[in-house]
Amino acid sequence: MKVFIDPPNSMVLFDLVERFGHEPLSSMAVIQEKIDNIEVDMPPMNVTLDDVVRGLKYAGVEVPSGIRGRMSLWGPMIEAADAAIIIDNAPFSFGCVGCDRSNELTKYLIHRRGIPALTVKYPTDEAEAKIMVGQIKDFLGGLKQ
């Protein structure tokens, strides 16, 4: 199943989803696609004006362009996801999109879709980390293929 991860660029979550037999929907994949396969030159991530305009599907023109640009990447993945895993209060070293408004909207869009979603707190020690991984493993294991 397609599992959206939040933060969308978390390598740890990406690895866990893949390891437990599902397809992670992450920013790495979508940005790699834009860099490798699309003939535009808008470094570093090839996010173009057209992308930002497409982001209007998720947030109105009054919402700053950075949020709309981000949502043009995450939004279609949330729409395609069968499930989602959200890490609450993660430090930015764990994965971060750099914008709290984008985070709020991302979480809301997941909620609105009504797909199975697991929200877990970021662990502060090893014991909590093991619990978190256990929760994610159980959640992913419970998803029907």
Binding site: A59, G60, E62, V63, P64, I67, R101, E104, L105, Y108, R112
Partner: peptide, 13 residues
């Protein structure tokens, strides 16, 4: 308020 991003998101939703 005009130009408040958080408010614009909440308003539309």
């Amino acid at each position: 308020c005009f130009r408040c991003a958080e408010a614009a998101l909440v308003r539309n939703e």
